[in-house]
Simulated assay, not measured.
Amino acid sequence: MTAAILSQKPHRPAAEAPLLADLRLAKARCHEFCGNARHTLAMILAGAQEGPVLWIRPAWLPDALHGQGMVRFAAPGRFLFASPRRPEDLLWAMEEALRSGALPLVVADLPAPPPLTPVRRLHLAAETGAQEGRFAPLGLLLTPGEGGAQGVESRWQFTCDHGGAQERWRLTRSRARTAPPKSWHVTPRDRGFAIAPCAA
């Protein structure tokens, strides 16, 4: 009975990527960032990682990242950009990149939250990339408004909460498999960012 329960394999905690302070995101999974400052949070995440970043965005949308704005968070030279012309190619490109395991972070800037089946495919692709590729990739879906992608590992909303000349954001973990909902205030510092729980 005991032999059937216990395993001789060493326990290996799931790999995690740093976000802010002690907040972490599970690798080999897909997460969702939403809210009006979601691109800023994605850049903060990219700056906390090492290695190249693939940023996928629709070719038909006019807004794009600007190098001078990026340098505050992460070196622009680390980024590879893909701009598919067809909506169905956005998630296809992300799935293939995750499956390759060639990149630690793959970001898809989407015009709307995807349904459950494509998200499940992204999880499976990321797991394959972790097993067969160089990196355990982290998939990041950027969605407008309050998000709503089904089946994501976690959902984080990042919104502007500036006061006068003070730059500040509100970070809300609205969904996570292993943690309850919670909100923090995020403020920039000379090196990095300070994070403090919001008052109840």
Rank of each mutant, 00 (worst) to 15 (best):
K27R: 15
K27M: 14
A28T: 06
R29M: 15
H31S: 08
E32D: 09
E32Y: 11
F33V: 00
F33L: 02
F33N: 01
F33K: 02
C34F: 09
G35T: 04
G35H: 04
G35P: 02
G35R: 04
R38C: 12
R38E: 10
R38H: 10
T40N: 02
L41K: 10
A42K: 02
A42M: 05
I44F: 00
L45M: 14
L45F: 07
L45T: 12
L45A: 14
A46C: 14
A46S: 15
G47K: 06
G47F: 05
G47D: 10
A48F: 05
A48P: 02
G51T: 07
V53F: 15
V53K: 07
L54P: 07
L54K: 04
W55A: 01
W55I: 00
W55K: 00
R57Y: 11
P58Q: 01
A59S: 13
A59H: 11
W60M: 12
L61T: 03
L61K: 08
L65H: 01
G67E: 14
G67A: 15
M70D: 04
R72G: 15
R72L: 13
R72S: 09
F73D: 01
A74S: 09
A75I: 02
G77Q: 09
F79G: 11
F79H: 10
L80W: 15
L80T: 11
F81W: 12
A82L: 15
A82T: 07
S83F: 12
P84R: 10
R85G: 03
R86Y: 11
D89R: 14
D89T: 03
L90D: 04
L90C: 10
L90I: 04
L91T: 04
A93C: 13
M94K: 05
E95H: 08
E96C: 13
E96R: 15
A97Q: 07
A97H: 06
L98F: 12
S100P: 05
S100A: 13
S100H: 05
G101L: 05
G101A: 15
G101W: 14
A102K: 13
L103S: 08
P104K: 12
L105E: 10
L105V: 14
V107R: 01
V107Y: 01
V107I: 15
A108T: 02
A108K: 00
D109Q: 08
D109G: 06
L110K: 06
L110Y: 03
P111A: 05
P111S: 08
P111F: 12
A112R: 14
A112S: 13
P113R: 07
L116A: 15
T117A: 12
T117H: 07
P118E: 03
R120Y: 05
R120E: 11
L122K: 03
H123M: 05
H123A: 07
A125K: 08
A125N: 10
A125V: 09
A126V: 02
A126T: 07
T128I: 02
G129T: 06
G129A: 08
